[in-house]
């Protein structure tokens, strides 16, 4: 199946795929009425924890802070049945610290790059940024697209930039941040998703977390449907990462329901779905312990890093 991918003509990105806003939001509302109980809830909470990209992206990040976060990522709770998170996500200058700390624990190191969060730099410096992060030991690169170019209608420029970053990534996996809060319409989100996937993204990601609104469920559904159409057309499975604003377990489970009923079971693993979040992990832990013991524990029982 995969060989045929290269033979596919690249779609004409000036054509718009129609998306009906009312319909998308209705579908999300309906899926939010799913009721997840007992074992199926427990399983999903643990899965969600295993899908978290534990993130810190602040100007005040220090090696100490990043190390603390890495320890937490590898060992979120004393209970050995509780899984580690998928990855830690940091700025390029802290990749080496993160790499050394997580070692070969199985937790990946992801780095934002390409002039995160705005991307308003020369392509040269953005590619250099990417190569630096990879050399420092990043397994995954979270790039930002040039929203200015997209909004100006220069879709081929956006495509070429992503393709260039993909090349600079080498072996590292590429997540493409669309910054959907700046694209505004679902049709733009769909178009940017298509451009990213055809240009070589391994994952498409909603947001930097620096722009409001960050991830929303309807935007995520539109992106999942783009991934589905790309899969139908190429047989290739692209991952999805909503990021920003997902703080509690209930919301996380709702995202998993969207995945489960749009793309099916094959996407329910950290290779194809991630949550970009900082505070979600602790809420998931609290809910997991609640499921185990039947009682909510005080927030003081959960580590704060």
């Amino acid at each position: 199946m995969a060989e045929e991918t290269t033979l596919l003509p690249r779609p004409d990105f000036t054509r718009t795929v129609p998306i009906d806003k009312v319909g998308v939001e209705e579908r999300v509302d309906r899926l939010n009425k799913r009721s997840i109980k007992t074992e199926s809830k427990f399983w999903a909470l643990k899965l969600a924890l295993n899908m978290v990209d534990l993130t810190t992206l602040e100007g005040m990040d220090t090696p100490g802070k990043v190390r603390q976060m890495c320890y937490k990522a590898m060992h979120p709770h004393p209970d050995p049945d509780i899984p580690a998170v998928a990855a830690v996500c940091v700025y390029p200058n802290l990749v080496r610290v993160a790499r050394e700390t997580v070692g070969d624990s199985g937790v990946n190191v992801a780095s934002v790059a390409t002039g995160f969060p705005s991307g308003m730099y020369t392509l040269e410096s953005r590619l250099e940024d990417t190569r630096y992060a990879v050399e420092e030991g990043a397994d995954e690169i979270d790039m930002v697209i040039s929203r200015w170019a997209f909004l100006k209608g220069e879709y081929n420029r956006v495509f070429d930039e992503i393709a260039a970053v993909k090349e600079a990534c080498g072996e590292a996996h590429l997540k493409v941040i669309l910054e959907t809060g700046e694209l505004e319409t679902y049709e733009n989100v769909r178009k940017a998703s298509d451009i990213a996937m055809y240009a070589g993204a391994d994952f498409i990601k909603t947001s930097t977390g620096k722009v409001k609104p960050a991830a929303t469920q309807p935007v995520t559904l539109v992106m999942l449907e783009a991934i589905r159409d790309f899969y139908y057309a190429t047989g290739k499975k692209i991952g999805m990462k909503p990021a920003g604003g997902i703080r509690d377990s209930k919301t996380a489970l709702r995202y998993l329901i969207l995945v489960n009923e749009t793309l099916g079971g094959d996407w329910l693993n950290p290779h194809l779905f991630r949550f970009g979040a900082s505070s979600l992990a602790n809420d998931l832990l609290m809910q997991i312990i609640k499921q185990q013991t039947g009682n909510y524990q005080s927030a003081d029982y959960f580590t704060i890093d």
Binding site: M1, E4, R34, S35, I36, K37, T38, E39, S40, K41, W43, A44, L47, R228, Y231, Y232, A233, T234, G235, L256, N260, E261, L263, G264, G265, D266, L268
Partner: peptide
């Protein structure tokens, strides 16, 4: 838009409820 033969050849249909089936919530 793709035709049926192409769709079947490239990806086929998706698989649902194989990994995560919801428990009863009556």
């Amino acid at each position: 838009m793709l035709e049926e033969k192409q769709l079947e050849k490239r990806a086929g249909n998706l698989i649902f409820r194989n990994v995560w089936d919801y428990d009863p919530a009556p």
